[in-house]
Nucleic acid binder design. Structure first.
Lengths: 217, 217
DNA sequence: TAGATGCCGAACCGTACGGTACGGTACCGA
DNA sequence: TCGGTACCGTACCGTACGGTTCGGCATCTA
């Protein structure tokens, strides 16, 4: 019944049966291990012990399969609910540092790197529907969460800025710098770059110097 | 005589005949237009009015061709010499803004995007020699130039920092933020994001608040 | 027990591409 | 004038992959 295949449809109702989930997880493994070229229909069928016929029935064609992999992975991330309680200055700063550290951990994860590489590789042609999908499903939610976090800080007087989007972009830049690009190019992190907690602390420190108030301590 | 093909050798002596340069420029066009998949040996031979036999003689195999494209493009960038004259505070700040603007312009250029996409696509497998090459040939020189610029600022008392590399990374983060990634994913810049001069000014402004001295005005 | 459904596995087809071989041509030095 | 070199254009080969088809099996339902 899923049929799917059309990306627009998949972005709305994305329910996969357990069996399909297993296959998609397997596809993700292949993708992580060897990039897009390593994800062939025959290879996936062999690795997942399923038939190519089922792949085409479920996902339509190869592009549909790729889109399904992305939405499948995105469906596994849950965004924590917004909070209304007033955190202390220290607690709030901790929240920022945790967010920063999480961001670094996520971006440096194998799965994230593989999917970003996939979307970027497709971005050259065909108006880049996969890139859109990845932005929509993954990046947007993270950004929204970060932005909400900053707005919480402003509401309680710890931060001062006019445009939350702009402030968040600066925060992002301070945290990520060129680390994401270097990882995508295949570089391995070493030394201080690999210590995400320290990097997160320093990024928050700088961010406070730009947007912190006296109340923020 | 070129023969090449082995990437290691190419990264040392990269002299291309004019004819080879024409062909590589043509390859670059194909790459920009349609991504890696659009750069086929037959297609390049047709577009460049040369024979496949020549391609294989000159570049060894397709990977050698890709590497040659990267080194060819990198050979066209010239890094301005280091200066010893003391610039005024205003002039130095201008230099930083110009650097920032140039960085944004370069990163958003079609050629840069195409080559980065290419290297990232290859980064999944084979220890990513192309990614290394791109970092070595392109990124490194830009970084060195930026870092030298910051050290100039420190020498003349406009900036204060311990680690120049670290300071430069922060500068980079403030300038680029997530713009590069969004471009690579196929997004088009609009509104304020597309005004590189304003973005550059704001980035330098923030950077001065983090690393500027009283002398820097 | 009989038909239907869903799926596996394997064989198959068409095409596109990397890489090679070869005939033909223009130029260059002896 | 002649051999050599470099190159173009094309035809060719092998393979890998996307996509289709089909036979067979297992499970479910009447």
């Amino acid at each position: 019944m899923p049929q799917a295949g059309r990306i627009a449809e998949q972005s709305e109702s994305a329910a996969f049966t357990p069996r399909q989930g297993d296959v998609l997880a397997c596809a993700l493994d292949l993708l992580v291990a060897g990039g897009e070229k390593a994800l062939t229909t025959a290879g996936l069928a062999r690795a997942a012990n399923c038939s190519k016929e089922s792949l085409y029935k479920w996902f339509g064609d190869r592009d549909g399969l790729l889109a399904a992999v992305i939405t499948f992975q995105a469906s596994k991330v849950r965004t924590p609910g917004n909070d209304t309680q007033a955190p202390s200055a220290e607690a709030y700063r901790d929240r920022l540092e945790t967010f920063a550290q999480n961001l670094l951990e996520v971006l440096s994860g194998d799965v994230s790197l593989a999917l970003n590489r996939l979307a970027i590789g497709q971005a050259s042609r065909t108006e880049a529907p996969l890139g859109r999908l990845l932005i929509e499903r993954g990046k947007r939610t993270v950004n929204a969460r970060g932005q909400a976090l900053l707005e919480t800080g402003r509401r309680f007087g710890y931060l001062a800025f006019d445009d939350a989007t702009d402030a968040y972009r600066t925060f992002y830049g301070l945290i990520v710098r060129d680390v994401h690009l270097r990882l995508m190019l295949g570089e391995r992190l070493d030394g201080a770059d690999a210590e995400f907690d320290a990097q997160a602390r320093q990024a928050v420190e700088k961010f406070y110097r730009l947007f912190g108030t006296t109340r923020s301590g």
